[in-house]
Amino acid sequence: MKFTYSSKLLWLSTAALSLGAALAQPAQAAPLAANSQDVYIGGNIAASRAPGLGGSVDGALASQGLGSSTSTGTPGTSGGLRLGYRLNPNLAFEASYDRIGSTDLQSAIASPAADSASGTWKAHGFGLHVLGIAPLDKQWSVYGRAGVEQWHTSLDTASATGSTPNVSTTGSNTSLALGAGVAYAISPNVDATAELVRYNRVGTSSTGSSAVNQVNFGLRYHFL
């Protein structure tokens, strides 16, 4: 059986969440270790991919009366913020602010007139997530992430000749989020993270939509 990116990520995140939940049982049965509960804040830089976005943007332009063929660039590097509460060494909850960097678009317009258009597609969202954490030693741990994200997406295009209308639309949708990552404790208060996250759908029919795969590198500060 051939595994796709999404099925591998689902397997990794499910495994990490399950392992974290299993390890959390004895932690809950005994008194929590010192500093096992804490609040943390963090930030990250993100690189994203939105496969299949071009065809979906064509659908959004068609709803505006434009027949088009659209090619897309790679979303620009973006950033995000995290506010988390670690209940015990194996379980944490996070609120997040995430962004999909601006993606350049080039559309060849066939109707109602021959034209070309350029523009951008971008999104930002707020999420709620649960993390299942499996410590490997005093410094390294792996974790799985599952949650929901509320996205706000915008599509803007401009005609090259003025013979077809410009388009500017926005939309909001809710997406599922699955991820898996690794954390390294630089000090008792600071750790570095690297993770893969997949959002199953970002955008609407009016803006164009796509699943988004995102790689995040971040730092977190724990208020122990």
Rank of each mutant, 00 (worst) to 15 (best):
Y184P: 02
A183L: 00
S68T: 15
T153L: 10
I109K: 13
G147A: 00
A108S: 14
A211C: 01
Y221N: 10
L128P: 00
A183P: 00
L219M: 09
S205Y: 04
S18V: 14
S154I: 02
F126Y: 14
D104N: 15
D137F: 11
F223T: 04
A50S: 13
I186S: 06
K2N: 11
L81V: 13
A29D: 09
S56Y: 00
I45D: 01
S18D: 01
L66D: 06
W140M: 09
L128A: 07
P89T: 05
I41E: 02
P135Q: 09
N35G: 11
Q37H: 15
D115K: 03
A180S: 06
S78T: 09
G125I: 06
F223R: 03
F223S: 04
L23K: 08
L53S: 02
L176I: 06
N189K: 11
V197D: 05
G101Q: 07
S71V: 15
T193A: 05
D58G: 07
A27R: 08
F126M: 09
S116M: 06
S175G: 06
F126K: 13
T70H: 14
S206C: 01
A50V: 01
L81A: 14
S102I: 03
P75S: 12
S56L: 03
R220S: 11
Q214V: 11
Q37G: 15
T153K: 14
G208P: 05
Y97P: 04
E149Y: 02
S175D: 08
V130S: 09
N213T: 14
R201I: 00
A30W: 03
A15N: 06
A47R: 05
W11C: 13
F223L: 10
T4L: 08
V167M: 05
A185G: 03
Q150D: 06
L61D: 15
S18E: 01
A29L: 08
P89N: 13
T164I: 13
S210H: 04
N213V: 01
Y40C: 13
V215A: 12
A192F: 08
S163M: 04
A192G: 13
H124G: 10
E149H: 05
P51V: 01
P135V: 08
A185Y: 01
S175R: 04
R49T: 12
G218K: 06
R220H: 09
V215T: 07
I100Q: 10
L91E: 13
D104H: 15
A180C: 03
T174P: 04
L61K: 15
L136I: 13
T14K: 04
S175P: 03
G20R: 14
M1D: 12
A110S: 14
S102E: 15
T161G: 02
F3A: 15
Q214L: 06
G125K: 10
S154N: 12
V167A: 09
H152A: 08
W11K: 08
N44Q: 07
H129I: 01
S36V: 04
F126H: 11
